[in-house]
Each structure stands twice: as structure tokens, then as C-alpha cells.
Design a binder for these strands. Structure first.
Lengths: 338, 338
DNA sequence: TGCTATTATGGGAGCGCTCCCATGAAGTGA
DNA sequence: TCACTTCATGGGAGCGCTCCCATAATAGCA
């Protein structure tokens, strides 16, 4: 039932080409003709056929968003929702649409093919938290424009939007050290995720900057979930740390649950700091000291940058680092001896 | 750089048509030819051009997922992530892709046009929680296949997948009443959302079934957020209810925070029951009695049903109601006098 | 052996659009 | 007035695919 260019042309008494020019804001069309065509198009509620346009022009104005579902843990915290919101919002504003792929392991190869070939999309946002993602390699080989959310330290030819996880973590841990906590432990994220390994790196740096040697016994790895944080904290308890830098708020919440059960008070007996600043963190008891990252903004920037990369190809990778913010609340406490 | 049918044809020494037949598993192709074409396609890593196929065949194998962003509150609880996961998973399994639109109010009209026309998608999943959604009307007028997640009580010509909010709420409130609580209040969801008004309806039904008249003073409306639940509970406190049925777990968590601050113990002083069974609910202190709904499964079913509707058009609307489950935990307590 | 079903394949048209080139009208300067 | 540019428009080709129809090769049967 959908109207075609030809139909509009007939009704407006012009040719297909002229209508096409009007629809694409081509300059050399007479004012009157333009107005006439516009009104007919309006009346017939004309909307160009995307498939036909794509076929002719080789562009779809659709970008793909690929999220590896191996990390489904992340889906329980607000990270991805916020990211998606930022991305779709920027796409809306730039007349693009978003195709969503949750890359489930069992369909991985097919997803990759679909994403890469077939001309469905003009570019890809890869919200991969994984250190090595097969999709990444395929994207590079293919030459499809793409941008990562979260940086890949191993390759500096890749465009990305990220926060400086290393430095943010370093600053937070430095802050804990400055408060006077001596045994500062960390509950790290999975080291096969970029954010996980970067935040751990920041933790180590902060210690070294104070002339301290990171103690492996004070480093426990978990999976970014509340449950993981809970278990990790229990494993950490025998080490009797004064403070714990937890690599995500979700894990910090779990850690605090473990502490509560163990009869320890935060921050009096042990200080806690998280990372992410999810909405829950401000409502804990005690409220959680954490690192705020501009997730939604990362999403919009990734989309905008990608769209720009598609229309203005350019060999240089774009690298965007957004600032984070230390949010000091109750859980970090004050220096016991300063 | 992408290979075309014609290219495969040339290399395999057959015609475009034959290659097309092979790719679409058409029966009347010689075994040898088929094998030869297959191997060439494999070697050249051929992937049919989606735009061209869509243009020719009038189908895209893409479905749209439309989420009204007016209800961004829902994005902070795991409802939408789980729903999306269910949908994409079913789409993966059925060789479809998902186009995501978060319908921001400012782009609403354009979104609607994009979604409906342009032939980008074959059908729509409308995860609308709103009682009246302009998208809905547009979809109906257009005749594009679509299915809702969450039922629309006012219209029985629309296909949907839903849980029985009314009865689930009724059962939960009946349970609270059976425990012996006499003054049972409710923190309802927004009444312009279907789930909100349905759960309130269930609350009223349960009271009436016990011969009680719902007391407007015991009914407070909030917005499904933690913060909203917190404020609502504070407004409810002067009424001194024995139990509160809260229409979402997120709100229940907020309500419990308000109670804690007011020095009231759950469930000893006041019983609480929620709705949703988000992961957090099992880890509260006390753990939260709630209604579990199969969100992810609703997503997959919606996708599968929609895909079926697209390939087998049928005037009858499909209506699917999934069962819920009462999850009795600590917060509902035991009967004070039974 | 001749005739009709059956099977395997090729080629043309067309999906709705864009983009290039051709054409005619109008405007410019000598 | 005549070349010469500029502007507005039309028409053809082609994007890569599917689908229909034609045709050639083979099989089936009297």
C-alpha cells in the first residue's frame, strides 16, 4: 500500500527524478515545483522505501550495536540500558536507526556474518568488554567502520570512546590511601574484560605510587555481579583489609552484604569504594563512595562519532576519553589515623 | 567488496537464477550443481545483499522493538534488559534481526513514520506499558503485523503476550489477607500504565472477595521507581497499615527503606509484598515476598509469535497469557492472629 | 519410435530508488 | 543576433535480488 516516487511524480505532474531531488533537498529545483511535490508527498504520507534507497546508494543509515552476551552479568546492572539510551538518542537526532545484536555464543558465527555482510548496516558500535572478541578481528578484516565503547589497550588503530579506567581507579585507591587506610584490598572484575583489568591496573599503580607492593592475597577477582562481590568479600575477610576498592558498584553492594553478615561495620571497621555510581549507590546504608562515569554520554558520543566516521572516512582512528568523577560518600569513611 | 549472485554464477559456470535457487534451497537443482555452487559461495564468503533481497521480495526479516521512553523508570530495573534478551534470543534462533527504537517523546512522530513506513521492518513488538500510545493507533491503521508485551484491556483485537496482572495481584493480596492482616494497603503503579492499573484492580478484587471495601486512604500511586516507593510509603505511614502490597519490587525496596528510617520492622510491624521478583529481592534483608513473572520468556514468545504472524497472516489476534508464581519469602511474615 | 510429463537451467522483467547524461529554456555578453 | 553558460527537468541505466516463463535435456509410456 506504500506510495512510491513514481506515484508522487504522476500526481504532481513531474518526473520521478524531480521528486527524488525534492526529497533529497537537491538545490536545483524550482521553488514552485518543490512546494507542489512536497504537498503531494505530504498528502499521500510518502515515506521512501529504505531497501530501494539502500540498494541504489549503498548506505542504509542503520548502525549495528553489538553486545557480547557472554557478559550477561552486565545486563543486571544499569550499564547497558544507559548505554543503549545514549546511543539511540543520538541516532534519533541524526536520523539513523539502531540494529541490536546480543551476540550469544551459540549464534556467534552467524551473527558475525550477518553483521558484517549483507549490507544491512553502515557501521558498528561494539560494546565489547572482552579483551579478545572474534567480532573485533572480523570487523577489522572487513573494513566496516566501527567504534568500541571501552578501549582496547592492545591495539591503537581502533577507534573508541572510553573513560580512563586506569586513572579513575588509581585516583580512588589513592584517595583511600590518603585517608590513612593501610591494607587496601581490591575486588577486581574479570581480567578478560578490559574494564576489569584496567581498574586492577589502576589499583596497582596507586599502591606503587605510595611505595607499596601490591599483595596478591589482597586481590580477589569476581565477575562484576552482586553475588560475585559477596563471595569475593568473604574470601577477603581473613586478610583483614582496612579498605576495599571494589571494581563495580554491583559487586560493592554484594561485598557490603557479606560484611553486614560478618558483623563488620562500614566504614568504621572497613572502608568500601565502588565504581560506576549506579542509582542504588546513593541509597545504600551507608551510601557508597564510588567513581561516576558518564555512561549515557559515552553512548551518544560513540554513535555520533561513528556516524561521522561513516560519512567522512578518515584513516586516523578516533579516540575519545571522557572524564570520571570521584563521588565521595559515607562508605569510605575518614582516616582512622592520619 | 561484497560478492554478488552474478559473481558466484560466473565462477560456478551456471546462471544467476540457479545460484539463487541453491541459496534458497529450491528443490529442482541438480545435486552436483548444488554442491558446486555451494562450494564457490563458501569460498567467496558470499552473503546475500539484504537490501536487494528485501526490495525484490518485500520482506526484510527484521522486526522492530519499540519501547516508549516516557517510562524510563523501567530502564533502571531489569525488566527491559530481560525482555530484550528474550526477544533477541528468539530472533537469533529464527534468523531475524532486531531494530530498536526507544521512542523519545521529542522524536515520536518521526519514529512512528520510520517504523511504519519505509519497509524497514516486517513487524513490530510494542513493549508499551502505556494505556494509550499513539504508536498503537498508527500501527493498527497501517496494518503492519504487531504484538504487544503487556495487554491492552480496552481492545481485544490486538495480539499480546502478557501475564495476568489482575489475578496475580489478587492472589498476592488474598495471601496477605489470609495471613490475617486486616489493613492491607497498596502502593500502586501509575494508572496510565497497564500493569499499574491491572495490579491495582487485582488488589481491589481481593479485598472485595473478602467482603472488604477498598479504602482510598490505603491506596497510594507511585511511578514504579525506588524513590517513588520511598515517598509513597511515607505518605502511607499515618494510615498505619498492617501490610502493603507494592506493585513493583523496585518500589518495595524504596518502601522498605522508608520503613527502616521510620523505625518499623518488616515483617514484625508491617508486612510487605512486591511484584516482579528482580534479582535484588532475594537478597534484601528481610528477603522480599513477591510475584515472579517470566519476563525473558515473554520476550521470546512475543518474537516467535510475531514472526509466525508475519509468515502466516491470520485475522485472529493471538493472545498469550503466561502464568506467574507467588514467591513467598520473609517480608510477608506470618499471621499476627490467625 | 514418437509423443507427452518431468526435471534442470537460463534469461528477462521488475522491486523503488539514485545518479548521470541529455535536453530545452532562460539568461549573459559581445 | 549568435554562441555560451546556467538552470530546471526528464529519461535511462543500474544497484542485487527474486520470480515467472521459456527452453533444453531427460525420462516415461504406449
Amino acid at each position: 500500500m506504500s506510495t512510491t516516487l513514481e506515484e508522487i511524480a504522476k500526481q504532481a505532474g513531474v518526473s520521478r527524478s524531480t521528486v527524488s531531488r525534492v526529497m533529497n533537498d537537491h538545490p536545483s529545483v524550482d521553488q514552485d515545483t518543490r512546494a507542489r511535490v512536497r504537498s503531494v508527498a505530504e498528502r499521500l504520507n510518502y515515506q521512501p522505501n529504505v531497501a530501494a534507497r539502500s540498494l541504489a546508494v549503498g548506505r542504509t543509515n542503520v548502525i549495528g550495536l553489538v553486545i557480547p552476551m557472554g557478559v550477561s552479568a552486565l545486563f543486571t546492572d544499569p550499564y547497558f540500558p544507559l548505554l543503549i539510551q545514549g546511543i539511540t538518542s543520538a541516532c534519533n537526532a541524526n536520523e539513523h536507526s539502531v540494529m541490536l545484536w546480543l551476540a550469544e555464543p551459540e549464534y556467534e558465527r552467524r551473527t558475525i556474518r550477518q553483521v558484517l555482510q549483507g549490507g544491512l548496516i553502515d557501521g558498528v558500535i561494539l560494546a565489547s568488554a572482552l579483551m579478545e572478541d572474534p567480532m573485533l578481528e572480523a570487523l577489522q578484516r572487513r573494513g566496516l567502520p566501527f567504534i568500541m565503547v571501552g578501549r582496547l589497550p592492545s591495539d591503537n588503530q581502533i577507534s573508541y570512546v572510553d573513560v580512563d579506567n586506569v586513572n579513575s581507579a588509581r585516583e580512588m585507591v589513592s584517595y583511600l590511601l590518603r585517608l590513612g587506610h593501610r591494607r587496601v584490598a581490591t575486588i577486581a572484575g574479570p581480567t578478560n574484560m578490559i574494564a576489569g583489568s584496567d581498574r586492577l591496573e589502576g589499583y596497582r599503580l596507586a599502591l606503587r605510587n605510595r611505595g607499596l607492593t601490591p599483595d596478591p592475597a589482597l586481590i580477589v577477582e569476581a565477575d562484576f555481579t552482586e553475588e560475585g562481590g559477596y563471595v569475593a568479600m568473604q574470601r577477603l575477610l581473613p586478610q583483614a583489609p582496612n579498605a576495599v576498592f571494589v571494581a563495580s558498584d554491583a559487586m560493592a553492594i554484594g561485598a557490603m552484604r557479606a560484611l553486614r553478615e560478618a558483623g563488620l561495620r562500614v566504614p568504621d571497621d572497613i572502608a568500601i569504594a565502588g565504581f560506576d555510581d549506579i542509582p542504588m549507590s546513593a541509597r545504600m546504608e551507608p551510601t557508597l563512595t564510588t567513581v561516576r562515569q558518564p555512561i549515557q554520554r559515552m553512548g551518544s558520543l560513540a554513535a555520533e562519532t561513528l556516524i561521522d566516521m561513516i560519512s567522512h572516512p578518515h584513516p586516523q582512528p578516533r579516540r575519545i576519553i571522557l572524564p570520571t568523577e570521584l563521588v565521595i560518600r559515607e562508605s569510605s569513611g575518614f582516616a582512622p589515623n592520619r
